[in-house]
Simulated scan of single mutants.
Amino acid sequence: MPQHLALIVLVDVNAALKAGALEDNIYLLDNMSLLGSENEGTGNLVTAVNGTCWCDGSQADEQVLNWLPYSLGRDTVSGPPPLTPVITDITGEAVDQQIIYPAQYGSPDLVTDGWYWSASVDTSHHGTFSYTLEIELHRPVKRGRTHTWEPVHMSYGSRIRIESKMRRNGFTKADTAMLPIAAGGSSPPYPYPQPYPEPTESRSRG
């Protein structure tokens, strides 16, 4: 069954607009830190993804990445709060090599204006792959007595690392799958429940 991974994209919008770049003004977090993600809460996040495949090399399980952008900070105490950043596209090595398949989907969450970006991951490929987030920020521009929002496009790169380690149960720490299976071999023993004993006839009362 696919496992959904959340990636929080937190942007200091005003600082990024002032600097003209997202570097040092973006913070990335995910929910895979216990499984090996690195540099949580920084701009250098490497997201760990469980990778599983069958003995013939084909994909045995699928992971799904979900990017959720948020903004922080404001221009002045009386100024308008920054709008939520908008992801407009996901490109780069991981897309070109068909490691991830990103697409935009509708969402009931109004924080993201009813849209969010998601990507399925081909977990049969192991290694570290880069991708680029195309992000649109909005600069407040005052014209007369009204404020308008001017779009500003920026790009930022991040990485995922698809692991070849077996997944483990988060509660018991036991293996939840024994993949990949070695070619020509049989699957390792797994503690499936033993069948129930055959019912016996009840004694008659007399």
Rank of each mutant, 00 (worst) to 15 (best):
Y27Q: 03
T76G: 03
P81G: 04
L5N: 14
F171P: 00
G73I: 01
P191I: 12
E136N: 05
R143D: 06
G127Q: 11
I160L: 14
T146F: 14
N44M: 05
V46L: 03
N14P: 02
R161G: 01
A183V: 04
E198T: 13
P81A: 10
S124L: 07
Q59A: 08
K165Y: 01
T148Q: 13
Q104L: 07
P108Q: 04
A183D: 06
P191T: 09
Y105W: 15
K173S: 11
K173L: 08
R205I: 13
D61F: 14
Q97G: 04
Q59S: 05
V95W: 04
Y196E: 14
S58A: 14
L22K: 01
M166C: 13
N44F: 10
V141W: 06
W117K: 01
A182F: 02
F171I: 11
R167N: 09
V95R: 02
I162S: 05
A16K: 09
N14D: 12
S204M: 09
I100L: 12
G20N: 02
Q104D: 00
A21Q: 14
R74C: 05
P195G: 03
Y156L: 02
A94D: 08
G51C: 10
Y156D: 02
C55I: 01
G43P: 11
N44D: 10
Y190L: 11
N66F: 06
G127E: 12
D12T: 01
P140V: 08
T123Y: 05
T52C: 07
R143A: 02
F171N: 08
I160N: 02
